[in-house]
Amino acid sequence: MSIQNHLSRLNVELLNGSLKSLLNDTLARAIGLGVGFVLWTVLAAQFPRELLPTPAETVGLAWGLVTDGTAWIHISTTFQSLFWAFIFAMLLGGTLGVLMGLNSYGQNFFTPAVNIGLSIPGLAWAAVAFLVFSYESIALGTLRYAPVVAATLTVFPYVAINIWKGVENIDHDLLRMADAFSISRRRVLWRIVLPNIAPQIFSAVRFGLAIGWKVTIIAELFAGSAGVGFKLEHAYQIYQYEEAWAWAAVFLGIIVII
């Protein structure tokens, strides 16, 4: 055998193949993050403090927000709106998706609505929701519904599409088999239909959450008094940019954790 072969044999024996590649991967990732970090610090030095605070400052401010409880208040507001919007969007989108998947009439009937829903930006729904709910908002306290409604309307098309695809692709052979064996409807639903569309349900959930929190935050631009989006824009308005950065850092931290 050639020298090359002998050497490569040695190499593999020294370091088990998989461990070596794991180290390589982590190193690459560390380099990527590290370079970004350094870049941030360097740029921060160039620009005025408010425009681009250093990582240290941002983290410090963010930590402050967390410890004094403000972070919790606003984040929980945002997440509450998100939660309700998610539920409604899943219900509305899910129903539509099922109807669309069952037959072509359902599909053709609801497609325009879903298409339009996809094209209208969250901003538009947020603006509309705000205007609609703002009347007598103080008296009726309805303004806080605005982000929920806006997010629901933005998200439901994505849920609908995913569920639609799931229902459409149910294995009809399985259904026929169940019919041949006269299996009860309940059992069919629970043990054939649901597992079949489970991947699409997961996909719908992921989309719903991902888009949902973005739109909720946008809606909070208008919604008056609470939520991460509101605080962010507020910071921008009063030129407290480093605070905006801190909020962003807090939120990103949460995303990373989840």
């Binding site: 989006g229 962010l232 921008y236 962003a248």
Partner: peptide, 12 residues
């Protein structure tokens, strides 16, 4: 990342 963040930071 929520798009509002990006929009606001761009505005900044």
């Amino acid at each position: 990342i929520p798009s509002l963040f990006v929009a606001i930071f761009s505005a900044m």
